[in-house]
Design a binder for these strands. Structure first.
Ligand SMILES: [Mn+2]
Ligand SMILES: [Mn+2]
Ligand SMILES: [Mn+2]
Ligand SMILES: [Mn+2]
Lengths: 219, 219
DNA sequence: TATACTTTTTAGATATGGCTAAAAAAAACA
DNA sequence: TGTTTTTTTTAGCCATATCTAAAAAGTATA
């Protein structure tokens, strides 16, 4: 139905638009897609003609309902395949993103519904991200970067940035995974790093960069 | 490494060449690929430049060792995915070919070796076709079309033509599957149809077309 | 508000993979 | 062995998805 490129652009625009809320700049899309801004202009015109985005020249794009539907279907496939790769094929969570980037474009609704069933209808992917259902609905947990949590508070890791394999390897090494509880012992103002305790057992210091990529819930 | 189109052409050429033995005509490739002969000429020139086929104008093509390697890797992936779809996702054997045509192009050697292991190293796909190992080797069983078997002889179904879904549905209806034993009671000269008995139980008449698409062994 | 800077679009390429119609070569046949 | 038919290639298109360089529009600033 839609080309691999169109699907990737819609997914990028959806992500950048904060779940479809905000309008998105050409340069931001270009950076996300690792293409030249000129290429983005061309593709936007094409997506606009197909009513997948709303577009006025020089004004950025807003993803349409139709465009959002497509993006969410691709995201659903990506995350289901990631679950398959980790749960069934014993891949590690830092190895699955690139393969899922390919698998997410396989066209077959029945394949996805059977895969969903085979995986026992998972609600989250290996990185803690929610898996939309066939209608694009998914549970939203209020999550924020660990870097935003105040000193002395506790929280729980609910999601991580899956596209950075080095980050995931680092999390393994220090013993952080989805579900780990974290207590913030101290915030170091100087460089934004934090001294934290994991599962009331092990203490360590993590950098601001790492803290910004760890999504936690305080609920 | 190689494009989806290049992989599909190599697979087609490999199939038409009788496992790499014979040279293949432009028109035959065009028919197999459902493209215009002119498009085949273009692609052949490209494959030839990459040393994936040997080619002299107007003389047809021969697949090279390198080309055969690629074709066999694609075939391996196609058949492993078909096993996955049938064994794990409960697809029926007449539903998997189109999906496998997409999945066979996913690029990740480790994915395939993990899938192979997950499926417990199958040697044949759901249609009886052998699955090449990572080096392209596979067991060859001497098989011939049922239409070639003489009256009064017995044989066993070892493979079927998986790309014809209607044929597979027909086989289900009459009760023929991989492993079914067949006795040829009578060959009708007039139209090439045959009266046969399945597993020494059920007798029926099948057309010449059907008999040509059923591959059996007499060993 | 005029000028400078940034962002975005357009113009004009390239590469891939497809097409039809016409030309050329090979094969069949009379 | 000519002549006709078939097969294959070439010529000249089109569409998609990229790119760089230049132009245009929008934004910021003095
Ligand atoms: Mn991912
Ligand atoms: Mn993920
Ligand atoms: Mn198949
Ligand atoms: Mn098969």
């Amino acid at each position: 139905m839609y080309s691999l490129s169109e699907e990737n652009y819609l997914k990028a625009i959806y992500h950048l638009s904060n779940h479809g809320q905000d309008s998105v700049n050409t340069n931001a899309i270009a950076e996300e897609m690792k293409t030249a801004p000129a290429s983005v202009s061309d593709m936007i015109r094409k997506l606009s003609k197909k009513k997948l985005v709303d577009y006025q020249k020089y004004r950025g794009v807003n993803i349409s309902t139709k465009g959002k539907d497509i993006a969410l279907k691709v995201i659903r496939k990506h995350r289901l395949w990631e679950v398959f790769l980790v749960e069934k094929l014993n891949f590690h969570w830092d190895e699955v993103h690139e393969i899922a980037e390919q698998l997410e474009h396989i066209q077959s609704p029945v394949l996805i519904s059977k895969l969903d069933e085979f995986l026992d209808f998972p609600k989250h992917d290996p990185h803690g991200d929610p898996i939309p259902d066939d209608d694009g609905n998914f549970a939203t947990v209020k999550k924020e970067p660990l870097s935003e949590i105040e000193e002395g508070k506790s929280c729980k890791v609910v999601a991580v940035n899956d596209s950075n394999s080095a980050f995931l390897k680092y999390l393994d090494k220090v013993g952080i995974s989805i579900g780990t509880s974290i207590h913030i012992n101290e915030r170091i103002e100087f460089d934004g790093s934090m001294e934290i305790t994991l599962n009331k057992e092990k203490s360590l210091t993590i950098s601001q960069i790492a803290a910004q990529n760890l999504l936690v819930t305080t609920a």
